[in-house]
Design a protein around this nucleic acid. Structure first.
Length: 496
DNA sequence: AAAGGGCTCAACCGCATAATT
DNA sequence: TAATTATGCGGTTGAGCCCTT
């Protein structure tokens, strides 16, 4: 095992970065965590001078050992295989990344370091005099436009070697005349190794349409459900292809309603806004507006319209589909007599869980009328392997068992407030209920597929799944949804 | 073959939000 | 608490390609 140079020491280093220093040396990642921040001064400098002769402990792969616990400095040594890079270790956002290059060069032979490492150390050690301030985004003569193969190569080499702890420092370290933002974009949209190349499949297309109906133009959210695809790619695909196709099918791509109805609704909206603006002193009673919007005919053949009817009821000026959706959900939750499954074509969301578990296998699937019917078949075609990687934005553990169960578990576990709340919560909870089907079936919910051929869930492995979501939802929804940020809905669901 | 228009897609821009001081 | 900076996201742009005339 390669170890950190034995005689490396920490003095006399000036830690402009107050809390964390990271360095990767061959197969060793070393974190220096300063706690509390060292302050410059005679005393602290003197203390630092005592921090010599640090030596790494031998420890197992991925185990994390505390080799020293001095008054101010903790040294963590994490041996990692050479193939594992910093970026793979899910490091938290680090405000600053540097290492004690001067000390390394003083205490170990420069020959110990490759040219790349020396370069990295050189750049890393250039500490801005302002704490935590980065200089890379200052207006410089930065290149714009298409990336050259040389630039790509530099960026790939840098990222695969050192990871991207801080994008703003990447250009400098990689010797690129680009801003960090540009580097990030280039990596995410083009250079990332896990990107899927080539045309979108029909399945992907349908999934995008379905997700767009729920999420609207939240491309990054949609992209998380399509492994290997970027938000930019999906956005371009939507604007260039799908929009056109939907229009050809007579569906308004913005509202996902039939074009005729979308136009009618638009006319109605413009008329009512005219009325409102022309008589701004006259406050139109909400009830009247509601009855007006409710008068718009809905089609039983297009249950999506029912959803929008609810949306209109909830919000006359629907800002976003997502907002409408939740408001609609809120309204529906207040009305115990309504059957939510008939309100939302995406019945799999939340209220499918309201169905008895004996029906859960079909709730959200065959029971759910879907204007994009092909999706149902599609979901059955998608592999679990693919989907299990589709939620990088949330802490997700993938459990794979020999029993054929493979599912996503949203972490942290058991928070009743998260059940049936927000898109993710809804999806997961429903997926689970579907999985409780008495049949050994494939359930597909909002792009999630679970192959359940085991009694895994029945054994209480995921206890939070036993909640009765309809009740919980109702309780939680009695708050003020409008006071919440929609991103919070998406991420955390309804607060308790 | 050349011109023009449409399409695709990589990249940029501006804004919102989070993090930090 | 305000100011500053980084990051992420969605809208937009524009270069290059392709197809049609």
């Amino acid at each position: 095992m390669h170890v950190f140079p034995h005689n490396a020491c920490l003095l006399p280093c000036y830690f402009y970065c107050h809390d964390l220093v990271v360095y990767q040396h061959h197969n060793m990642m070393v974190q220096f965590i300063l706690s509390p921040p060292l302050k410059e001064g005679k005393e602290s400098r003197g203390e630092k001078e005592n921090l010599t002769g640090l030596q790494p402990l031998d420890c197992d792969l991925f185990s994390l050992s505390l080799s020293l616990s001095l008054s101010h400095v903790l040294l963590l040594l994490i041996p990692i295989p050479s193939s594992v890079l910093l970026r793979s270790l899910c490091l938290p956002s680090i405000p600053f990344c540097t290492f004690l290059s001067s000390q390394l060069s003083r205490n170990s032979s420069p020959a110990d370091y490759s040219a790349d490492e020396q370069e990295f150390l050189l750049h890393s050690s250039r500490v801005s005099p302002e704490m935590g301030r980065h200089t890379c985004c200052h207006k410089q003569k930065l290149r714009k436009g298409l990336w050259s193969p040389e630039e790509d190569e530099k960026l790939i080499k840098h990222i695969t070697t050192y990871g991207h702890v801080c994008w703003s420092s990447v250009p400098k370290q990689a010797d690129l005349q680009r801003c960090g933002k540009s580097c990030r974009l280039r990596w995410i949209n083009y250079l990332r190794p896990d990107l899927k190349r080539g045309a979108f499949s029909d399945q992907e297309e349908d999934l995008i349409i379905e997700l767009h109906a729920v999420l609207g133009n939240r491309w990054s959210q949609i992209a998380t459900r399509l492994p290997g695809r970027t938000d930019n790619e999906i956005k371009n695909f939507w604007n260039s292809c799908i929009k056109k196709k939907l229009k050809q099918r007579g569906i308004d791509p913005n509202t996902h309603k039939p074009l005729a109805e979308a136009e009618a609704a638009e006319d109605q909206a413009s008329k009512s806004s005219e009325r409102t603006s022309s008589s701004c002193d006259l406050k139109v009673p909400i009830a009247i507006l509601e009855s007006t919007t409710d008068a718009v005919p809905t089609s039983s053949s297009m249950p999506m319209l029912d959803k929008h009817a609810v949306e209109r009821k909830a919000s006359k000026n629907s800002a976003t589909p997502m907002k409408c959706f939740f408001l609609g959900q809120f309204i529906a939750s207040q009305d115990v007599s309504s059957d939510p499954a008939t309100i939302f074509p995406l019945a799999e969301l939340s209220f499918a869980a309201d169905c008895s578990r004996s029906h859960a296998a079909t709730a959200g699937l065959s029971v759910c009328p879907n204007p994009y019917g092909r999706l149902l078949e599609m979901n059955q075609d998608l592999s679990c392997n693919t989907l299990s990687t589709g939620f990088p934005s949330t802490p997700t553990a993938v459990i794979s068992t020999s029993m054929g169960l493979r599912t996503n578990i949203n972490l942290p576990p058991y928070n009743p407030a998260h059940v049936c709340a927000g898109i993710d919560g809804i999806r997961y909870s429903d997926a689970v209920y579907s999985s409780n089907s008495s049949q050994s079936s494939i359930s597909s919910v909002g792009g999630i597929e679970m192959q359940n051929s085991s009694p895994f869930f029945d054994n209480g492995f995921l206890p939070w799944l036993e909640l009765t979501p309809d009740t919980d939802t109702r309780v939680q929804l009695e708050g003020e949804p409008e006071d919440l940020k929609w991103s919070e809905f998406l991420e955390d669901g309804f607060p308790s």
